[in-house]
Structures are given as C-alpha cells and as structure tokens.
C-alpha cells in the first residue's frame, strides 16, 4: 500500500498533467467548485459534492459525431488520455452503470473511446457531503468497490491510496508516494469505511417504493400531482450520473456541416412525440413517472454493477429541482401516500 502527503497532491497532479489531461475540482468564481482542467491556483480539496456529475467526460452535453462534406459522413471520435481526480463513489457507480448500458448489445464508439482513455481516481467520502446523500441505501458509496483505478482515503495529513488497476498502480510509482505497511493501512481504511458508512443516513423509503412500483400500486394520479409542479426544466436528468438520453441533430449548409448529439431528457414533452403528433406520454406526470420508474423499476439488471437500482444515491436531483421534487421528496411522498396499501 502507498500513501501521499496532502501537501504533495498538487505536485502529483502537476506530474500527471505531463501525460494526461487532468480534471479535478477547482474553486472558481463565487467559491463555486467546478470540475475541470487542473489549475494550480484554483485546485481545492475542499469541494464536497460537485453540483455536476462527471458524465460529460464521456458523454458531453453536445458532441460532433460526424463531419459531413458533400454528403460524405466522416466520423469524429474525440478522446484524450484523461484522469478524473477526486470523483465520488456515487459518480463511480454512475460511470459503471452508464458504461454497461452504453456498451451492451451495440457498442457506442463515442462513449467507449472516452471511457477507455480515462483513469478514474475516487475520493472516498468520510461522511455525507450534504443532506441529500444516501449512497449507502443504493449500495454505491461512500467508497467505491470497483471500477476505479485509484481510490484515496483521507487520513488527515495524508491520503492512503488503494490501487484498483494496473494503470492506477503505474500512476503512483513516483517518489511522491511512500510505501507503508499494508496490514496497518488496511486496518485504517476499514475503520474509515465503517465510520463513513454509519454517518450516512439510510433512506428506507427507496426500497419500499421500489417494491410498490414493482407491484403496480402507485396510481397515475400520484404522478400527475408531481406533474402539476414540474416545470420540465430537465435539471434532474442533466445532473444525474445515469441519465444518458440524447438527441441527434444536423447543423448543415449546402450538404456540409456536422451531425451532433446532445443531452435530451424524457421530461420533455417532445421526447416521445411521434411525427403524427401522437404522444404515448402525454402528460408531465407520465413523463416524471417514466424518469423515476427508469431509476427504480425499469432498469436492466445487467447494468446495476452491484448497485441497488439505477439511482446512485447522489441526491443531485433533490439538490437542483426548483420545485422540490427530486427523488427524496418523491419517495417520501409515495411511501406516505401508499403506506397501508
């Protein structure tokens, strides 16, 4: 096992930038933490839960997939050797689940080229990062079980570093890292994990609502009540680590230009509207139902990767929703309304 002094982390990241594009938390305007390219003067370890998950590293908000010239399609597959430093365990689970979805049956070259070129360095959480964290309920945190190349555990003055892959091991072969007694480190990590897990509140309603949805007891009226409030901003989906729906559109002039794909969401009315104007999900309630049932019921088992469902418990939809829907309020309301039944 290895460790690194906290004060050496900046030098570590600097080293990594020689070979990689390093994405990490930087404190920017208004003291907001933004996950982007390493900047020595802005880098911070005090970042809590970032308001965006890291899916844009693999699945950009918009991305050119073809350049088209005289109606000839030339694929544009962009990827760069990248290190994601400091992602949270819930984000790691989001990446695992999304990667499974994007590669099964048919592979998505745009996603997988970036996924394959990216090293994931998880920062285990010592406890909840804010009041909406519930990763212990969804089996997706506060530390990662798999998928990472490296995982850092905060021991105060230093980080203990768990290796998850060969690539990860190579990254910590430099002299900034100190060899330490493995047995001793394992004990410390186990204690960290135990304390961290206990600090995160369980949301038992997640499981009970999953069961209710499976049994079909939740009526459409319940969803329509939420639908009345929802302003269809799509925020919940765009911050969600496992929402990967997209739209495809052309930017063209005289047969040349580009074919682009960009984030889309089932919360939008046009998402399922057919050319005939028929819409199988005609109300905002039916669209909210879709989004949350996709997380809690209608996922593919194969994509779970050890998680409970395809909600990874990061709580971001609860953080961002301007009208206080979000998964937490939603499951609380449903379980309250259907308690006896």
């Amino acid at each position: 096992m290895k460790s690194i002094d906290k004060k050496d982390v900046i030098d570590m990241l600097k080293d990594w930038t020689n070979e990689y594009h390093v994405l990490c938390p930087n404190k920017k305007i208004n003291d907001d933490c933004i996950f982007d390219g390493f900047e020595q003067d802005h880098f911070t370890l005090d970042y809590g839960k970032l308001s965006f998950c890291l899916k844009s590293a693999f699945f950009p908000q918009s991305e050119i997939i073809f350049e088209v010239e005289d109606n000839q399609y030339h694929e544009v597959i962009s990827s760069e050797k990248t290190i994601l430093f400091g992602i949270r365990a819930c984000d790691m689970m989001g990446i695992l689940q999304s990667s499974s979805f994007m590669s099964r049956d048919y592979g998505d070259v745009y996603y997988s080229a970036k996924d394959d070129a990216t090293i994931k360095v998880v920062m285990a959480c010592p406890g909840p990062q804010n009041e909406t964290c519930f990763c212990t309920t969804t089996n997706s945190g506060p530390f990662a079980e798999k998928g990472f190349d490296l995982q850092f555990f905060d021991m105060g003055e230093e980080f203990l570093v768990e290796v998850g892959s060969k690539k990860g091991k190579e990254l910590i072969s430099g002299e900034l890292f100190t060899d330490i007694d493995s047995g001793d480190a394992k004990g410390k990590i186990a204690a960290f994990k135990k304390k961290a897990s206990e600090a995160i509140p369980k949301v038992d309603e997640i499981k009970s609502v999953m069961e209710m949805l499976k049994n079909g007891v939740v009526e459409d009226e319940e969803w329509e009540e939420f639908g009345q409030k929802c302003i269809a901003c799509g925020g919940c989906a765009f911050v969600c680590p496992t929402c990967t729906c997209f739209n495809v559109y052309d930017l063209a002039r005289d047969g040349s230009g580009m074919r682009v794909r960009g984030w889309d969401t089932c919360l939008y009315g046009g998402f399922t509207r057919e050319a005939s104007m028929h819409n199988p999900r005609p109300t905002q309630g039916s669209r909210l139902k879709r989004r949350y049932e996709h997380k809690l019921k209608d996922y593919n088992e194969q994509d779970l990767q050890g998680g409970l469902c395809t909600c990874v418990g990061c709580g971001r939809c609860s953080d961002v929703c301007p009208v206080d829907i979000g998964i937490l309020n939603l499951v609380l309301a449903i379980s309250r309304d259907y308690k006896s039944g």
Binding site: T244, C245, V248, R273, P280
Partner: peptide
C-alpha cells in the same frame, strides 16, 4: 419516436 435505433438514445423506451 426513435432517434438512434440501437437502444442508446432512450426515446423509444416502453417500460423496461
């Protein structure tokens, strides 16, 4: 409504 035709874009989902 379909965009990708290959199970990725999510538009055509019907339950699971």
């Amino acid at each position: 409504m379909m965009k990708c035709g290959v199970g990725k874009c999510g538009h055509c989902a019907i339950g699971d």
